[in-house]
Design a protein around this nucleic acid. Structure first.
Lengths: 226, 226
DNA sequence: TACATATCGTGAAATAGTTCTCTTTTTCGC
DNA sequence: GCGAAAAAGAGAACTATTTCACGATATGTA
């Protein structure tokens, strides 16, 4: 007779093999919701409750949980802690990721000062600019360094992730430079289209995209879900 | 015999009826790319070129264009200007959207100072905080006002969009308040789950989501497209 | 002018993602 | 303990999205 794992065993974070793109995209929201519910002292959450928050179908939530190899308890729901930890494990948020910020403008500074990154293992190890007026100034305990030092620091600290907050025209040269020094991922807050080798991953953060969706809604009511 | 519009006619922005969710999500990227190519002086772009930039299939680009009722020219591609303008028209970016920022912290200030919003018709009309140390200070030409004044200003200016950059706990009360004054959309930069009536649209901007995708890549190479 | 080429347009096929339906499991109240 | 209720789980059905395959159409060149 086949032995099935009991719910209690399943309540510890599981190894996740593979996951659909669609589920993957929902993970950050699940994670955020778990954090909010943990703060409220909740231990379990049902697929129904999650489906209402995310405005998706109940069954889809259950499929997502299945993708994550998370098992729920009948009549109780899913363990909030397990779900959060499984997502963290899957995304690699438990191991720290060291990153450098390039660009000490408003956005670069705002990111450097953002206290929330700690919760995701993101450690801002330095901030760089080419403006002599900014170099040497203190941003949340970090001293702004000359961008000339950037590559040296990337190599010294074996930095794999760069956060780009520079003016458009500086984006590609800096990207080329840091990739040559071993960077594997660029979180690009500039509107520049970046060209990179295959082994480097770009994430284009287009803040204004969020506004576009809202603009559409405001200008063309009534409208359904997008 | 049925008359077909020539390519030349089709080169002016078209009325768009409906569009799939998937296409809709790609619009901000298309728009960003058109802006970049216009800056380079390019007039036309092919589905092949777009597909390489977006890392999607060539045919899919053509389907997206068809969704937007944009027609290309054989042997040339799509008019960059038409594409940009069609997207702007579709999303309502040509008419201005007035918004107020609530929260004068680093993020609120960075958003208030961001020069790019102008290009999308987004006009930041005011910034509010409850910290007496911040009230009265100047942010990029705007004077930080007391959050007590927020509702009055929403009503005066018939503001429909609020940009939320306050601490978590303040998010829901402020949201309730401004909705009562007529706000229809909330661009939520806090990690708070907001509850709103059906006629109000929320956009949860989870900056850290971008990092999560990169973290996954960095921690679990090699990996395909997500 | 005719041909070769690049590129679009589109219906059909394939794949991915979502929803439905029904079964099973656990918990709680009596 | 027993029955009712509240979930989860799983396969089937359905829908949306993407890719394939091929025909049509401008453009540039000999």
């Amino acid at each position: 007779m086949e032995r099935r794992p009991s719910s209690e065993e399943a309540a510890s974070p599981q190894e996740v093999k593979s996951i659909s793109k669609a589920s993957f995209r929902r993970l950050p929201r699940y994670h955020q919701i778990m954090r909010a519910f943990e703060d409220l002292g909740r231990k379990y959450i049902s697929s129904k409750e999650l489906s209402e928050i995310l405005e998706i179908n109940e069954t889809l939530v259950r499929k997502d949980m299945a993708d994550l190899s998370i098992r729920g308890k009948p009549n109780q729901g899913y363990s909030i802690q397990t779900l959060r930890q499984t997502i963290e494990g899957f995304l690699g948020l438990k191991e720290p990721t060291e990153a450098l910020i390039v660009g000490g403008g408003h956005l670069g500074k705002a990111l450097a000062m953002y206290p929330g990154f700690d919760n995701y293992g993101l450690r801002i190890m330095g901030i760089f600019d080419n403006d002599p007026a900014k170099i040497g100034s203190d941003v949340n305990g970090l001293i702004v360094e000359d961008v000339e030092q950037l590559c040296r620091r990337v190599e010294e600290k074996q930095i794999k992730l760069i956060i780009l907050c520079v003016p458009k025209d500086a984006a590609q040269p800096i990207t080329d430079e840091v990739i040559a020094c071993g960077v594997r991922a660029v979180w690009n807050f500039t509107p520049q289209e970046l060209h990179v080798p295959k082994h480097v991953r770009i994430r284009n953060e287009q803040i204004v995209a969020g506004f576009m969706a809202l603009s559409y809604y405001l200008k063309s009511l009534p409208v359904e879900e997008m």
